[in-house]
């Protein structure tokens, strides 16, 4: 046999989808509540919880940095994969263009968050 079977890249995207879906299912509801509702309304959490020095220290901490990056990047890969595969449901025959757009946005978010988090330092 001379023909080499081309390996599918689907498991990579499916893996990122699964990881992002799981991570966002576990943490995103509470994060929305904290950053979008409790902190702006001054409700439940102490004042200054998300002050600049505290959040800078959190983003400089190895675990904090990793958490922020994982939430942003993996959730975007999850959403991109789901939206890409849902196009079919609306009668859109998703091709290379749609694939590049969906996964491209996730890749852009990954690169932007990684570069900012690295620049913030350790």
């Amino acid at each position: 046999m001379t023909k080499i079977l081309k390996r599918s890249n689907a498991p990579i995207f499916w893996g990122l989808f699964g990881a992002g879906g799981m991570l966002s299912a576990l943490f995103v509801p509470m994060m929305v509540f904290i950053t979008g509702i409790a902190i702006p309304l001054g409700f439940l959490l102490p004042a200054g919880t998300m002050s600049y020095p505290k959040m800078l220290a959190f983003a400089q901490n190895f675990i904090g940095k990793g958490f922020i990056f994982a939430i942003i990047s993996l959730s975007l890969w999850f959403a991109a994969h789901r939206v890409y595969h849902s196009l079919h449901e609306f009668g859109i025959h998703a091709g290379t263009g749609a694939k590049l757009l969906c996964y491209g946005i996730a890749l852009a978010g990954t690169v932007v968050s990684a570069s900012v988090l690295l620049r913030i330092g350790f």
């Binding site: 966002s24 995103v28 994060m31 929305v32 950053t35 979008g36 600049y52 959040m55 800078l56 983003a59 922020i68 939430i71 942003i72 959730s75 975007l76 999850f78 959403a79 991109a80 939206v83 978010g109 932007v112 968050s113 900012v116 988090l117 620049r119 913030i120």
Partner: peptide
């Protein structure tokens, strides 16, 4: 919805930087 929130968060990270 998850993606929309993550974009808000991403803007926050950029602003923090």
């Amino acid at each position: 919805f998850v993606a929309a929130y993550v974009f808000i968060l991403l803007v926050g990270v950029v602003r923090l930087g």
